[in-house]
């Protein structure tokens, strides 16, 4: 069933302390799709992913994963349900070495990559497997942050700006990794600043504005609506 919703988000609201950052975002992601969230800085893209993962202080609305309501679950249960998260700040543990970082997220379902497959994909990481997390370059940290969640067997990946601050050649590598994951049947929700990169990998794009979904652009409309998109993104 290729068209089933893997993720269905309705009226998602989220708060940091007293200030509300998400004001009822609604969208869906279908099985095997790559969907991006685009938007200006501070629009609420990261908060959307954090709210799905359950790591904001307070949230409301509905997050259905695989037909199961997750809004009341704690973040560890959400992860165990099969959603994996690669945060914007990368979140590499300084007190763990590369391999410990890689092995940290528990396997939640069969079908994840093996450690040797991951090293094949990211040879740099194998070279540095005994290095402390704090000693990695920004690019290496980003690779590790993505690599880390490939082992778990999660079927839905939330990637927050995986290409931020990376050299073009690494961006290209990450593009290939995403294609590869898609080919494996994984579903990906991707936050991107780089619309051009997003266009190369995604099936659909949601525009986030002021904590809501402002618009949806399918891949085939991307070129004809690029002006509108530029207006949204303010570029």
């Amino acid at each position: 069933m290729p068209d089933a919703d893997v993720l269905d988000v309705r009226d998602l609201c989220a708060w940091y302390g007293d200030s509300q950052s998400l004001h009822g975002a609604s969208f869906n992601v279908r099985q095997g799709e790559v969907v991006t969230l685009l938007g200006r800085n501070g629009a609420g893209k990261t908060t959307t992913l954090r709210a799905i993962m359950g790591i904001v202080e307070r949230r409301s609305g509905s997050v259905c994963y695989d037909g199961r309501e997750c809004i009341a679950l704690s973040s560890d249960r959400i992860a165990r349900a099969g959603i994996a998260y690669c945060p914007e700040e990368r979140g590499i543990y300084a007190s763990l070495d590369v391999e410990e970082n890689l092995l940290l997220p528990p396997v939640v379902a069969p079908g994840g990559m093996t450690i040797s497959e991951i090293y094949e994909l990211f040879p740099n990481l194998q070279e540095r497997r005994r290095s402390q997390g704090s000693k990695l370059s920004g690019g290496e940290q980003q690779m590790l942050a993505i690599a880390r969640i490939l082992r778990t067997g999660a079927k839905l990946l939330l990637l927050d700006e995986p290409t931020e601050g990376l050299a073009p050649i690494i961006v290209e590598l990450i593009g290939r990794v995403i294609q590869n994951l898609k080919a494996r049947g994984l579903t990906i929700l991707l936050v991107e600043q780089n619309a051009r990169f997003a266009a190369t990998v995604a099936d659909r794009h949601y525009i986030i504005e002021n904590g809501r979904v402002a618009d949806m652009i399918a891949a085939q409309e991307f070129d004809e609506r690029s002006e509108k998109l530029s207006a949204y993104l303010g570029v």
Binding site: G54, D76, I78, G91, Y93, S95, P106, V108
Partner: peptide, 13 residues
Amino acid sequence: TENPKLTRAFGIN
């Protein structure tokens, strides 16, 4: 110890 929130979001209780 380093980042309890993220660690929990990886599925660790």
